[in-house]
């Protein structure tokens, strides 16, 4: 382990919101990754919670397979509320 491994950084900007990916950084261990993330990504109160994960532990979908992979969601328009035609008299729906 000559180089410090790469970590992905996720920050919750306010309580009630999701952690969001903000970038990455190198660190010797998780504790240092969290401290570095604090120093570079939250200098102006941008966060109340930090997650870090080693980039090599992250698994992702393959962008070249996007068409086939996301196809099941494309032909099911009945999943959207606008699919259903209801008379105007129906309120609160």
């Amino acid at each position: 382990m000559k180089d410090w491994p790469l970590y992905e950084v996720f920050i919750r900007s306010r309580s009630g919101l999701n952690h969001k990916h903000v970038g990455s950084l190198h660190a010797a261990d998780p504790q240092m990754a969290i401290e570095h993330a604090r120093d570079v990504y939250t200098r102006r109160m941008e966060g109340v919670s930090i997650w870090v994960v080693e980039s090599s532990r992250l698994h992702a979908s393959d962008p070249t397979e996007n068409d086939a992979f996301f196809e099941p969601s494309q032909d099911k328009i009945y999943r959207h509320p606008t699919f259903y035609d209801l008379p105007d008299e129906v309120k609160h729906m």
């Binding site: 970038g23 990455s24 950084l25 190198h26 120093d39 570079v40 200098r43």
Partner: peptide
């Protein structure tokens, strides 16, 4: 100056996503 160090880091990290190492 600390901000500038951070800018360097953001940009090195962006560059590394293209397959080059920090080293």
């Amino acid at each position: 100056i600390q901000d500038e160090a951070g800018h360097g880091l953001y940009l090195y990290a962006a560059c590394e996503t293209l397959g080059v190492s920090r080293e």
